[in-house]
Design a protein around this nucleic acid. Structure first.
Lengths: 215, 215, 215, 215
DNA sequence: CATGAATGAGAGTTCATTCAT
DNA sequence: TATGAATGAACTCTCATTCAT
């Protein structure tokens, strides 16, 4: 059901991934509007109910189009989901990236990354339901998301180390550790409850990265 | 296979979670054996296929019992899953706890926690599929698992801070950060690939906790 | 609770139907007690839930015996039900018959029949659920119940006509009409609501039988 | 299970009773044909086998549509049954009502009611299996059917009494008595066996209503 | 392109009945 | 006799996907 992950991944050459499968891109303006409506509706539906409990009927109902119209734009339920995961992944990157690049020190960059991620997650709580569920629905996208995110973090840490800003023994482990911290802090302080100030949380983590937690 | 369910199932002494619903506890020895077989089979089935693609029929087939026998011990598919999540949660705690308590310093304790968690996850890769999917299938158990884990970490950090071992501004945020690091490092170095030495990973993290990553 | 099953169970002399299948009559005193418990429990269970929603497990639970014990006394679910229908049928007859025979005039006899039937139904509301459902579960018993009841009524009307007490054109139609009236008045004023005095209802019907409803 | 009696009944003002739930009314001609086929098939299936032994598969097989198509028009097995009971109830009323209104005297009206009811029941023997089983499957509809029927009878008897055609002490009891007679005579002479002339039966009852059965 | 009816494989669940102890 | 675990056929309901209009 979910397995056929065949040629598709390679086909979508662009790293960002064309949201609808190339074969079904809308040709008319009307078509573009319908596609967007379906995509937004899918984010809502899966965000609220998850992949398995969400239904195509639910998506088209939200989008205000006929059931059959779904298949004009997507080949299967799996496919919208895949498109959605890539889309969300892309959105996080676009939202957080600039803030990181604007930082002056690397510690400050990591602080900014967490801060903006928490803010993004507060505005898009579906992101957890969607990306996390990809672990079960579309492992390929799930891996891709975290692998590239970790790679990006590792690369910038490496550069900072090379610049002499960070410890020289910096490694992939540090990247995964930082990513894990961020994800869980987002889960706790964005999705579960917004009961703490994002700036304060970012401060705590920045200080911890700067000098550890030992006295 | 999930392993030592022996002590628990018989005793059910632990207040935390009677694995089968009280109303359906087996009254004969034969019944106890069947229950154990079903539970182990469920861990296998869900670990391999996930909750939604796993089936009751798959479970009973693996367990070598008739389809209907499942319902002698559980009221629904959700219920075995719930039982399994609680069980795994309990197992992690039981496996990692002693190592933490045996440590001499608090940094060492956190190091030991991560080390043993990675080892546990390598031996029980299903744990990710099962606990993570609980976010969608049984949010209650999912929250419970991470909330209590974070609480436990926070409590021991606090005590260490009070003893003067850690920074005094230690908080819940640190607990969630550490938990997130551990979970993601486990995902990367236990489930995805065992391409690094657990001791080495633990060393990196311990050092990072001890003095941060700044030069 | 259904009540005096005592006299009958032991005697079973009447050709109408040994309540438990002859092949399975209990031989010990303990057995007799268990049988009685099952029978009473079945009347409760089917009276409350109906035949299809009632279950063997429900019966044995109420009776306080093991599930398997049911099959020591009855061959199937249908069989208890059959036994129950015959039993209730018999009980009505035994309860109403004497009152009818004690009447001085035939109109009075019909009045007494209705009056006692209403009273009986108020004390045994299950009778409707059980006998009526027999139409679907055990048509044979259902037909038997109403056919013999109608025959009995027809016979006594005929005799009264022969004695000169009733119109000479009395027929089976009258018997069915009277039975139908009684059943529906019982449904309305015993099962649905006890919001009218049985004596008053009986008076109305008696007067109607005596001289019709025309002015 | 059967309880949810939404707002539908009131919403669908149409006196005929919206047979399918509002939310699922067919929007195309093809849909209307399918719905009708399913409804007719359900009457057959339940009429022959009763509610519990009848199956959705049996209905769709008779209707010549796919199993899933059933759920395009009804939410559950209970729901078709409910629709059917209301439908049959309506049909009896529509069949018998005109004959009653055409009568010249009230005794004649009751005679006509019985006569046409017997005829209707001969043509639609399913009516008994369906309405009677509603007592167990959908008590609400069952009560509704008999309560409104009794009310209708009571109202017309009352008017006749006010006009001076009937005894002045006419009451609800008379209405239930007449309804019971009719139902049982229909059972006996329409469903069980058509071994008597409906006109003759109606004559007997009319005479009984006119002047009673006493000599 | 859009529509919505039709399809049918598939899964969870129930429960009467059997049987080993 | 009593017990309660085991069995598996049967059934309802879901929903992704197809297709005629």
């Amino acid at each position: 059901m979910v397995g056929r992950r065949d040629a598709k991944a390679t086909a979508t050459a662009a790293p960002e991934a064309a949201v609808p499968p190339a074969s079904k891109e809308p040709r008319t303006e009307r078509g573009r509007r319908t596609l967007r409506a379906i995509l937004d509706a899918a984010a809502e539906e899966f965000g609220e109910k998850g992949f398995h409990d969400g239904s195509i009927a639910g998506i088209t109902r939200r989008a205000g189009v006929a059931l059959g119209s779904f298949y004009t734009y997507f080949d299967s339920k799996d496919e919208v989901f895949r498109a959605l995961v890539r889309d969300m992944s892309q959105q996080v990157k676009e939202h957080v990236g600039p803030a990181i690049r604007a930082a002056t020190s690397q510690i400050d960059a990591e602080r900014a990354g967490l801060l903006h991620f928490i803010r993004f997650a507060r505005a898009h709580k579906e992101i957890y339901r969607i990306i996390d569920e990809a672990e079960f629905v579309d492992p390929e996208s799930f891996r891709m998301h975290y692998a590239t995110t970790a790679d990006r973090i590792a690369a910038r840490l490496r550069e900072a180390a090379d610049r002499g800003e960070l410890r020289d023994d910096i490694s992939e482990v540090h990247a995964w550790a930082i990513m894990g911290m961020n994800v869980f802090l987002g889960l706790r302080y964005s999705v579960w409850a917004e009961d703490a100030d994002p700036e304060a949380i970012a401060d705590v983590v920045a200080s911890m990265l700067a000098r550890g937690i030992a006295r």
